[in-house]
């Protein structure tokens, strides 16, 4: 189903599209001040945990032991200093960026192609193939952890970025194919058919005509997968042991001791680790939420 005829327009633009006046419809009128008040209150409550996270990261251990809700007495940056230099977070961030972007690049390219073959390909195979991919959403990662590690060893990929990138790309396939296939179903094949009639090869048709049409859902695929890869702890720990290539979560959690944790330092590390994703999110938020719908509905 769809009620959005012009999906080729980037969602950010669609929101401002003059052909689709949204304001009048939204002016339902009654109860608005009350609703606004309720929502503001709810937002404040909802932000409370994030407030605690940030405030604690600026506290000395002695202040952490004091009033938990109070703001820090001064802008103490020691935790950030310790986390950044002590855990070499700068280098870890570069590693995380490289691994995350290459993993997602891989997932987007091969996932979109697979979804296209499923939706527009041979009817007989499409449903079983899609089911096979969906099964991946239900399998706990631990089930195949040991055999997968042995496989990477036999391929000689341990302690290389490639092992993590391949593992991530494979693990992202179910969600990626699911999102792309769902979106493709809602798209008319008219453009591709026109391209085919004009003599374009399948390869050209896909990359020049179909893939650009997938832009809204690609935003969704990228952000959902980025969250998962960026935050993953065990895969990089296992495949990249050796501090020169550790990722952000691995570096941050090296501050968790066996018997005690340095809250201030860990929280500072967590804020640093979350910031890049949050910044990307804040700039793309409209795109992301819209893309979500584009990708998930249908």
């Amino acid at each position: 189903m769809t009620a959005v005829p012009d999906t080729s327009i980037a969602p950010a633009a669609a929101d401002r599209d003059p052909r689709r006046p949204r304001r009048p419809r939204l002016r339902n009128g009654y109860g608005r001040p009350v609703l606004e008040l309720v929502m503001v209150a709810l937002t404040v409550v909802y932000l409370f945990p994030l407030y605690i996270l940030v405030v604690t990261s600026f506290k000395r251990p002695v202040d952490v032991a004091g009033n938990p809700v109070a703001p820090p007495p001064d802008l103490y940056l020691g935790n950030y200093e310790t986390a950044w230099f002590g855990a070499d977070l700068g280098r870890a961030m570069v590693n995380s960026v490289v691994i995350t972007s290459l993993s997602i690049l891989g997932a987007v390219v091969i996932g979109a192609m697979a979804a296209y073959a499923i939706v527009r390909g041979s009817r007989r195979w499409s449903t079983p193939t899609l089911m096979l991919f969906l099964l991946g959403l239900m399998i706990p990662a631990q089930l195949g952890m040991v055999p997968l590690y042995m496989l990477m060893r036999d391929l000689g990929l341990l302690q290389t970025y490639w092992s993590v990138i391949i593992v991530n790309t494979g693990a992202l396939m179910p969600m990626t194919v699911f999102l792309y296939a769902g979106f493709l179903r809602t798209q008319s094949p008219a453009y591709e058919e026109a391209a085919r009639i004009d003599g374009a090869t399948w390869w050209q048709t896909f990359w020049r005509v179909v893939f650009p049409l997938l832009r809204p859902v690609t935003g969704t695929v990228v952000i959902i997968n980025a969250i998962n890869v960026w935050n993953d702890f065990l895969t990089p720990l296992l495949y990249l042991s050796g501090s020169s290539s550790r990722t952000l979560p691995v570096a941050v959690f090296s501050f968790r001791g066996e018997y005690a944790s340095e809250w201030g330092i860990i929280f500072a590390g967590l804020v640093i680790a979350a910031l890049p994703v949050l910044i990307v999110y804040f700039f793309l938020q409209r795109h992301i939420i819209q893309g979500f719908g584009g990708g998930l509905k249908g």
């Binding site: 891989g106 390219v109 091969i110 996932g111 192609m113 697979a114 296209y116 073959a117 499923i118 939706v119 527009r120 390909g121 041979s122 009817r123 195979w125 193939t129 096979l132 991919f133 991946g136 399998i139 089930l143 195949g144 952890m145 040991v146 055999p147 997968l148 496989l151 391949i166 593992v167 790309t169 494979g170 693990a171 396939m173 179910p174 194919v177 094949p189 591709e192 058919e193 085919r196 399948w202 896909f206």
Partner: peptide, 27 residues
């Protein structure tokens, strides 16, 4: 009216089988 080529599936299927299906079965 047109049927997309099945080989488009291959890269994804290979990586997915390698990383998820085979290890899970072996496990």
């Amino acid at each position: 009216p047109t049927v997309a080529p099945t080989w488009f599936l291959l890269p994804a299927l290979v990586v997915y089988a390698l990383v998820v299906l085979y290890p899970s079965l072996a496990g």
